[in-house]
Amino acid sequence: MYLADRTWPQLGEAMDGESLAVIPLGSTEQHGPHLPLATDHLIAESLARAASGRTGHVCTPTVDIGVSAHHKQFHGTLWVDPPAFRSYVESLARNLTYHGIDRIVFVNAHGGNVEPLREVGRRLREDRAAYAIEWMWNDSIPELVEELFEHPGPHGGPKETAMIMHVARELVDEDRLGDARDGGVVDLENTDSRKFGARTFYDAIDNSENGVFGDQTDATPEKGKQLFEAATDRLVALLEWLDDQPFEDLMPEPHVGTDRR
């Protein structure tokens, strides 16, 4: 159920007794010469809407701009700093609790958002306001990603390329897949990104001239459909599991030696 498409009287009926919501989050940042800046938030919204459509849970509008300063050298990249992102997302989550939501899944498609989202989830849980967890699509299906791609790449690689081929193929410049591969880095292990155990890079451009990794020529719409359907199934399973949990079982354990609430 996509919240923004409903009227408030419709939502009053639809949300009666509803306790779970999904918030899709992504970024607006470079994804190489072949993919749109919208890549991450398109993937997040598509998965969130598909899973919420199957389960009937609330899906909010998408948070399109995330923690992306590490892509700032490339044209068009937009970002907010982590404290601003955390504050915004926490405020949004607390809005939902006002309407009776007490468990939230952050459907995330951007690595830079992970740590801030975990911090928001911890604060909400410590306050007993809600149980909120971060879910990353490719982390839910690692075996399939490994099976489909020899070099999936951590950013702008064939896994993301295939997903966008499936959800918005018209936005993929398929004539530039070879350019993306040849102008980027196929295997991150081949970069000089660590010295004596220390990470020596901060921005994507420090490792990849065109900002992407992996072999983009290995992407197809058919592989994108496989990824999308498998990830959606995993998200549906997570939503169904979370919806079944008693709220008290999701809250922090008491101090050792005290009785449970």
Score class of each variant (00 low, 15 high):
residue 5 D to M: 14
residue 5 D to C: 14
residue 8 W to M: 10
residue 8 W to R: 15
residue 8 W to S: 02
residue 14 A to G: 15
residue 25 L to C: 01
residue 25 L to T: 00
residue 26 G to V: 04
residue 30 Q to N: 12
residue 31 H to V: 13
residue 31 H to A: 11
residue 33 P to H: 13
residue 33 P to M: 13
residue 33 P to Q: 13
residue 39 T to R: 05
residue 41 H to V: 01
residue 42 L to N: 01
residue 44 A to Q: 00
residue 50 A to G: 02
residue 52 S to D: 14
residue 57 H to M: 09
residue 62 T to M: 09
residue 63 V to M: 11
residue 63 V to P: 13
residue 67 V to P: 06
residue 73 Q to F: 06
residue 76 G to Y: 07
residue 81 D to R: 13
residue 86 R to C: 01
residue 88 Y to K: 07
residue 88 Y to N: 09
residue 88 Y to P: 05
residue 89 V to H: 04
residue 92 L to R: 00
residue 93 A to R: 01
residue 96 L to V: 15
residue 97 T to S: 12
residue 100 G to T: 11
residue 100 G to W: 09
residue 103 R to M: 06
residue 110 H to E: 01
residue 110 H to F: 02
residue 113 N to V: 06
residue 115 E to Q: 12
residue 116 P to M: 06
residue 122 R to C: 15
residue 123 R to G: 10
residue 129 A to S: 11
residue 130 A to C: 14
residue 133 I to L: 05
residue 136 M to C: 10
residue 137 W to C: 10
residue 140 S to W: 01
residue 143 E to P: 04
residue 147 E to T: 14
residue 148 L to Y: 00
residue 152 P to Q: 07
residue 152 P to R: 13
residue 153 G to H: 03
residue 155 H to W: 02
residue 155 H to I: 08
residue 156 G to T: 11
residue 156 G to L: 03
residue 157 G to H: 05
residue 159 K to G: 00
residue 164 I to H: 03
residue 168 A to Q: 07
residue 169 R to G: 10
residue 175 D to N: 06
residue 177 L to M: 08
residue 184 G to K: 07
residue 187 D to Y: 09
residue 188 L to E: 04
residue 195 K to H: 12
residue 199 R to S: 10
residue 199 R to D: 14
residue 202 Y to T: 13
residue 203 D to R: 03
residue 208 S to M: 07
residue 210 N to Q: 08
residue 212 V to H: 03
residue 214 G to V: 04
residue 217 T to V: 09
residue 217 T to H: 11
residue 220 T to Y: 08
residue 221 P to D: 15
residue 223 K to I: 09
residue 224 G to D: 07
residue 235 L to M: 09
residue 236 V to Q: 06
residue 237 A to S: 12
residue 242 L to W: 01
residue 245 Q to D: 08
residue 246 P to H: 12
residue 246 P to K: 13
residue 248 E to K: 10
residue 248 E to C: 10
residue 249 D to A: 11
residue 251 M to F: 10
residue 252 P to E: 02
